[in-house]
Structures are given as C-alpha cells and as structure tokens.
Simulated assay, not measured.
Amino acid sequence: MVTNSEDFLALPGVYKALFLYVEPASTIAPAFLAWFFPGARWFHHELIPFAPPLGGLDARTVMAVWQLGNCYLLLGMISSLVFRAVRDTLPQEPAKQERILGASMTALAVADVTHIAASFIGLPAELRYVPWTWNPMTHGNISFVVVLVSMRLAWFAGIGRTRYYYGQGGKIKKKR
C-alpha cells in the first residue's frame, strides 16, 4: 500500500521518524547483538560499564540474555508493525489513529520509566551520577530512553502536532 504523510496525521514529522523508524531499529538491533554477534557474553558484560570481564556465562545467564533480546525484538516489532497497521488501516482518521497510538505510547512510556529506573538503580553507586563514564549500552538504556519517554510526553501534550483525540474531551466523533 502506498502511503503519504496525510495518511498518518496522528504521527507527523519528528514523531513519525522517531517512533516508526529510529525506535524500532534501536530496539530490534540489541536482540541480534545478544543472539548472534557479538553474542550473549559481550551483551552481558556491556550492561555495567567497566565491570570486570567474565569468563563464560552459565546456561541460565545465556538464556536470560537471549530472553532479554527477545523482549527487545518484541518492543521493536510492536512499534514498527502496530504503528504501520494503524496508519494503513485508518488513513484519514487521525482521531482513531491517535487513540490507538496513545494506548501503545502509554504502555511504552511505562516500560521506558521502569527501564530507566532499573538501569540506573542497577549501576554501581560510583557510576550512577557520572554519565561521562557510561558506555554506549548504558547511554542506550538510560539517556536514549529518557529522550524516548520525553518525546512520548511531548506527543501526548500535542507539542509540534495537531491533537485529534487527546485534549478533545476523549470522544471520537462517529461518522453518520
């Protein structure tokens, strides 16, 4: 199906670029990094900057890292596939698009906040407040996710876009 920018009025401009392309790619990529290359050992080691390298990982740890990779894949696919389905199924119906996107964005925002908290609390105390010492994985888990949740909140607030459902009394007008 050929789409144009008017088909996805509820997710315009920077929101479309971030939530339809950047976020899915940034959440799907870690799955492949954990599963294939550089692999579970590398992924596990990178979670804490400057942690002493481990030998091999036990089977339970490998399974947990792979399952974490699966969660990343799931989040990326939901963003990518569900948002595209909303766009393609409801072109020119921005209030309905926005209501469905809002439900997804709410779930993702809750996941963002808990992900930031778990990542931050999980850091050794001496690293928590010195972000210049963090590695790319830590910045991905904290800094980038702060950007994502901030953009979700901006989307809900209607910053840089027209609101069709949120802020409109919560009712979708039915066609007669």
Rank of each mutant, 00 (worst) to 15 (best):
P30W: 07
L68N: 04
A117Q: 05
E46P: 01
F19Q: 01
Y129S: 02
F156D: 06
V147E: 00
A51I: 03
C71S: 13
A40I: 10
L81F: 13
Q97T: 02
T114V: 15
M1N: 10
M137R: 01
F120C: 07
I142G: 04
E93K: 15
D58P: 00
I159L: 09
E46A: 03
T3F: 12
L18C: 02
A111I: 14
L73M: 15
A95V: 09
A29K: 05
R87F: 08
W132C: 12
A118T: 14
L123K: 10
A154G: 08
G169F: 03
A64H: 03
S79A: 00
V65G: 00
I48T: 10
A107Q: 03
Y165W: 07
Y164Q: 14
V65F: 00
E23A: 12
T27E: 00
R99Q: 11
L74A: 13
F156L: 09
A34N: 04
A109E: 15
L127K: 00
V62H: 00
D58N: 04
T106D: 01
F19E: 03
G122N: 07
I48G: 03
T3D: 12
L101M: 12
L108R: 02
L148A: 13
I100W: 05
P12A: 02
T133S: 08
I78P: 02
T106E: 12
M105D: 06
S104A: 15
A103T: 13
Y21C: 12
V130H: 07
G170Y: 01
L68V: 07
P30C: 14
Y129H: 08
G55W: 00
A10T: 05
M1H: 06
K175Q: 06
G55D: 05
T89D: 10
V62M: 03
S150N: 02
S79F: 03
P52R: 09
R152Y: 07
K174A: 14
I48W: 01
I116M: 11
R87E: 13
E46I: 02
Y164V: 05
M1C: 07
N70S: 15
A25K: 02
P131D: 14
F8C: 13
A117V: 13
T89C: 11
V82S: 15
G76T: 12
L47N: 05
I121F: 11
Q168H: 11
F83T: 15
A111Q: 07
V110P: 07
T138Q: 06
F144T: 11
F32Q: 11
L75E: 04
R84P: 04
T89K: 14
A34G: 02
P38S: 10
V146Q: 08
A29D: 09
N135T: 06
L68W: 05
G76E: 03
T61R: 08
I78L: 13
H44G: 02
L57H: 07
S80H: 01
I116H: 07
R128I: 12
F144P: 06
L9K: 12
N141F: 04
V22E: 06
W42C: 04
